[in-house]
Amino acid sequence: MSIAIHHVQIAIPKGGEDKAREFYSQILLLTEVPKPPTLASRGGIWFSTGNLELHLGIDPNFSPSTKAHVAFLVDDLDGIKHRLLQYGVKVIDDHLLPGFHRFYTEDPFGNRIEILQVQEEKA
């Protein structure tokens, strides 16, 4: 039996698609993918990282997720950090996970986002 994660969904408030598009597509450089027509009327927006989809669903009782989070594994942590700071998005460095460099940030709705990179071993 094979099991893989197809997508992760987080909530955003109604009408948040444009802000989500700016953050996830323009800043984090994720690729927006069209929602199937049968689901498009629900609102929300979908993105792809290449091997995983991130679905942002509308929650009429939205409350930001400040603990549970999506973690993006990247190959240029400093580049992503610099890009976020250029757009005025705060980053919080964290060095507590052995084997990784990482930081936390928030999307425009207050949802926690982790960005991490494998720490290369020193020779």
Rank of each mutant, 00 (worst) to 15 (best):
V91S: 07
R83I: 06
L39K: 13
A20Q: 03
Q86N: 15
A20L: 03
P60C: 07
P37M: 01
E106C: 09
H69K: 03
S63L: 12
D18G: 08
T105A: 08
L30C: 01
G44S: 10
D107V: 04
G16V: 10
F62C: 04
P64E: 13
I5T: 15
V91K: 06
L56Q: 05
I12M: 15
Q86M: 12
D76H: 10
F72E: 05
V74G: 04
E120S: 02
V33Q: 11
E121P: 02
V91H: 09
H55A: 11
R83E: 14
F103H: 01
G57N: 04
Q119M: 14
E22P: 03
V33P: 09
V33F: 09
L97N: 02
E121F: 04
P36S: 14
T38G: 01
D59H: 14
G15Y: 12
K35Q: 15
G110Y: 12
H7F: 11
S2K: 14
L54H: 04
G16T: 05
P37S: 04
D59A: 13
L97I: 08
F109E: 11
Y104E: 04
S63G: 13
A123W: 11
I113G: 03
R102A: 00
A71W: 05
L116N: 01
H95Y: 14
L39R: 08
H95D: 15
D59C: 06
G79A: 15
I12Y: 06
L28V: 09
H95C: 10
Q26S: 15
Y104C: 00
F100R: 00
V91I: 15
G99D: 00
F109K: 09
A68G: 06
T105Y: 08
S65W: 05
V91Q: 08
F47Y: 05
Q119E: 15
H95F: 12
R21N: 06
R42W: 08
M1D: 05
W46R: 05
T66Y: 06
D107F: 03
I5F: 14
Q119V: 00
K67C: 07
F62Q: 07
S65M: 13
S65L: 12
E32H: 06
P13E: 03
H101I: 00
S65N: 13
L28N: 03
